[in-house]
Amino acid sequence: MDYKYIEQLIDRYFEGETTLEEEQILRKFFAQEELPEHLQQWKPLFRAEQEIAVAHLDESFDERILALTGEYHVKAQPIPLRVRLRPLYRVAAFLAFAIVIGTAVEHSATPAADAPREPIAVQGQDELDADETTPLDIRSAELMESDSLMIQ
C-alpha cells in the first residue's frame, strides 16, 4: 500500500500548512489498528490529540453547578427563616384560635375583661406540653401569630 499521501500530509502538518479537513484525515488514519511500521511513531501524538478533542463533561456537571450557584441565590432571600419556623405554625394557629375564642367568650359571657384570659393561656400551655414542644412564652407566641397571619 502506498502511504505517500499520508507522509505528505504529516510533513505539511508540521509545517503548519494543512487544512482542518486534512488534519481530520490524519487523525482518522492514526485511529486505525493496523499501521505501517515507519508511521507508528506518530500514532501516540495524533491519538492523544483525538482523545482530548472528543472529551466532554455531562449533564450532572451542569446540575452540580446550578445547585451551587442556586444556593447563593437562595441565601439572598429570607426563605430559610420561614422554613425553619414552619413546625411552629400549628402551635401559632392554635394559640390564635384560642385567643379568638377567648375574646368571643369574654364578650358574650362577662363584661369583666381580665377574668377569662388566665384560664385560656393555661389551656394553651397544657396543649404545648402534651405535644412535647418546648414551652413558649406569651411574647413569642404573639410574634408567631402575627407571622402566620402575614404569610396567609
Binding site: I52, A53, A55, H56, L57, F61, D62, R64, I65, L66, L68
Partner: peptide
C-alpha cells in the same frame, strides 16, 4: 455554562487528568 466542554478540554490539555480538569472548570 454552555462553554463547559471547551473549557474542560482546555484544562485537560494542560493537566492530563480528567478529575482535576473537571475541578478547574467548576
Amino acid at each position: 455554562l454552555s462553554h463547559r466542554d471547551r473549557l474542560y478540554r482546555q484544562a485537560l490539555s494542560i493537566l492530563a487528568d480528567a478529575a482535576e480538569a473537571e475541578d478547574v472548570v467548576q
